[in-house]
Write a protein that binds this DNA or RNA. Structure first.
Length: 643
DNA sequence: TAAGTCACG
DNA sequence: ACGTACGTGACTTAT
């Protein structure tokens, strides 16, 4: 297996664990959740396929098998670029084969010809009636697609099994082999090295490659035998796996291959414009400081502001140094000219380096489009994550930032259609809490922030002013995040006592929500996890931490998780429904992006009316909650105009 | 590799 | 007494 996304997850979790306090994280989990099976070591029989006779024998086994585990070895980290170096298969625990196809080191033995082998395997690979298993098959689907093969019969994926059973644990094969099988596997770094010294898999000796790759197929099959029973033993988890995660995986694969068209020239022009502004701001900042310094360095900014200019810090970073973040600089800007310049510079530098400079470089030269990766097993709440590039954090909140969305375009003869769930997390809160006032407001189709303001301030909704509505909106968002009084007061810029008063009034008017918050905390503490409406399990390892801050953090996460996670379930169901519809009706429209509560499609002009009608219906119809699901839809030549 | 910062929902 | 909204990914500087 050769997959950097799992590695990223693993690295992050390692970091989180190394920072943990003394309380064992397992304390929150019932003993039954993570049984360490004592199993006899399986004897290993690994084989290298170098002759047509051997290949035929293996293909016959795979044709007859109830389930075949398959894995690809490749030339690159980039799923759109990578080429096959070899494949491995297993149909029985302990037995596996490696099929080398493109090892090119000096003295490499003659291997079966890649094209001929793929032609022979293609009918089996593309047969939906021959069930396949793998660890992160979305990656292997890309590799095979790069060679003109559309993998079908994708039946099981151990990455997704692990994610459904324990979303908070590492899902990379090496870790899972240790955790579930008590087996220490050969790592990719052991075979290829790491950092600058890393070699391509096509340079690895076929003997060594067989040990590594055959083991991957074998261990993945054994992991399936350990994990799938855990999925099946819980009806709700089985549905999350079988009706959400497995079906959405090929949809993600399709979206990643579709990619999105960018107007590179527009981004280049914006980069030049932003660069000129940065030069001006930099000169002005140096003048204010009366010396040159690096505006990108928080450390140097600290020294200038709080050292040389002796300005009094307003807040600290987690490590205790005086903060220069947006919130702090905004406060300092009231009394000093330099912080304002720094804020402007930061905003522009961010747009330039992360978006207008970077995105054009990410265009695939062969397709002329940008192909993100959707990480399906990273976010512990069930959300997707997008990387390389991240298309889920393209600016939208400021007018300057929004211009970047003008560069996300449809080709001539098509438009972009964007559809997003309106207030989905608050609707889910209404559904779960069954709070009467909240249910009524959504049923009546009211402006929810206005309705909340009316309740808190004891006004008729028509009498609510803009300021009151803004307060209510902050409170509503805060509720979704499990806000504290302190958080609310700092967000609104008011005294803690005043914030306390608003919270008290909110909970008096929405007692169902107060009950929900309390019950969720209790449930999280008792079980070590909470659930989405569909039964996705969201683990909270620190819910019983002896460290108060950590425990409270876990409590806030517990309150947020069912809402964020249910929203994730809903949009995944919608993606499956939409893709199914597009395929069944043979439409040319393509799903191209998902941004948590929003789907973006590239739609030929002839299909716009149809998509504009049917897409929101499908999205709103994936579940029947106690409140209506509302979907807003927009059309435009680019993402900015479609929003 | 860590810390700080900031883009999104 | 203490530090705080939930969940992500990426860039830059500095070690």
């Amino acid at each position: 297996m050769f997959d950097r996304f799992e590695f990223k997850t693993w690295r992050r979790e390692l970091n989180a664990e190394s920072a943990a306090d003394g309380a064992p994280s397992a304390a929150a989990e019932p003993a039954a959740a993570a049984p360490t099976p004592t199993r006899a070591k399986v004897e290993r029989h690994y084989e290298t396929i170098l002759t047509a006779t051997q290949l035929d024998a293996w293909l016959a086994r795979m044709q007859a098998a109830a389930l075949t585990c398959l894995d690809t070895e490749t030339t690159s980290l980039d799923p759109m670029q990578a080429r096959l170096v070899g494949m491995s298969f297993s149909v029985e625990a302990g037995h596996a084969a490696y099929l080398p196809l493109a090892h090119v080191y000096a003295g490499a033995p003659e291997q079966l010809a890649l094209d001929a082998v793929l032609a022979k395997l293609k009918p089996w690979l593309e047969d939906p009636a021959r069930p396949k298993l793998g660890q992160n098959l979305k990656y292997d689907m890309h590799i095979l697609a790069n060679h003109g093969i559309a993998l079908a019969g994708v039946a099981h994926d151990t990455l997704l099994q692990s994610y459904v059973v324990e979303s908070h644990k590492p899902h990379d094969m090496d870790t899972m082999a240790e955790r579930h099988l008590g087996v220490k596997t050969i790592t990719y770094a052991e075979v290829c090295g790491k950092g600058a010294g890393q070699i391509c898999f096509d340079q690895v000796s076929i003997e060594r490659a067989t040990e590594y790759a055959a083991e991957d197929a074998d261990i993945t099959l054994q992991l399936h035998q350990a994990l799938y029973p855990q999925v099946e033993s819980d009806a709700k988890l089985a549905r999350i796996y079988g009706e959400i995660e497995m079906p959405v995986m090929p949809v993600l694969h399709e979206m990643e291959r579709n990619g999105v068209l960018l107007d590179g020239a527009l981004l280049d022009a914006q980069s030049r414009e932003l660069g000129a502004k940065m030069m001006d701001l930099e000169a002005a900042a140096h003048k204010q400081a009366d010396q040159p310094f690096n505006l990108n360095s928080p450390k140097q900014i600290q020294e200038i502001l709080f050292g040389k200019l002796a300005i009094k810090p307003v807040k600290k970073t987690p490590s205790g140094s005086p903060s220069t973040d947006e919130d702090a600089l905004a406060q300092l800007a009231l009394d000093h000219p330099l912080p304002k310049l720094l804020l402007e510079y930061r905003g522009i530098a961010k747009l330039k380096s992360t978006y207008t400079d970077k995105l054009p470089r990410m265009v695939d030269p062969r397709t002329g489009r940008v192909h993100t990766n959707y990480a399906q097993a990273v976010a512990i709440t069930g959300r997707l994550a997008s990387n390389d590039p991240n298309l889920q954090n393209i600016p939208v909140r400021t007018a300057e930032g929004r211009r970047i969305r003008e560069a996300f375009i449809a080709p001539p003869g098509s438009h972009l259609v964007s559809a997003d769930y309106s207030q989905v997390e608050l609707r889910i809160m209404a559904h779960i809490s069954k709070d009467a006032s909240l249910l009524k407001a959504f049923a009546a189709g009211e402006d929810i922030h206005r309705a909340t303001a009316a309740e808190i301030f004891s006004l008729d909704p028509t009498a609510v002013d803009g300021e009151q509505r803004r307060y209510a909106k902050v409170i509503n968002f805060g509720l979704i995040y499990g806000m504290s009084v302190y958080g609310l007061s700092s967000q609104l810029g008011i005294e803690r006592a005043a914030a306390q008063q608003y919270m008290d009034r909110y909970f008096a008017r929405y007692p169902g929500v107060a009950d929900y918050m309390r019950e969720t905390r209790e449930k999280a503490r008792e079980q070590g996890y909470v659930e989405t409406v569909f039964g996705r399990r969201l683990w909270l390892p620190e819910i019983r931490s002896s460290n108060g801050a950590r425990r409270q953090g876990a409590e806030r996460a517990a309150i947020n998780a069912p809402m964020q996670g249910t929203a994730a379930d809903l949009i995944k169901l919608a993606m499956v429904a939409v893709q199914r519809w597009l395929a069944t009706d043979r439409l040319q429209s393509m799903l191209i992006m998902q941004v948590h509560d929003e789907l973006v499609l590239e739609v030929p002009d002839a299909e716009i009316d149809l998509v504009k009608t049917r897409l929101p219906e499908l999205m709103a119809g994936v579940a029947e909650l106690a409140v209506p699901l509302v979907v807003d839809v927009g059309v435009g030549p680019n993402w900015e105009k479609a929003h």
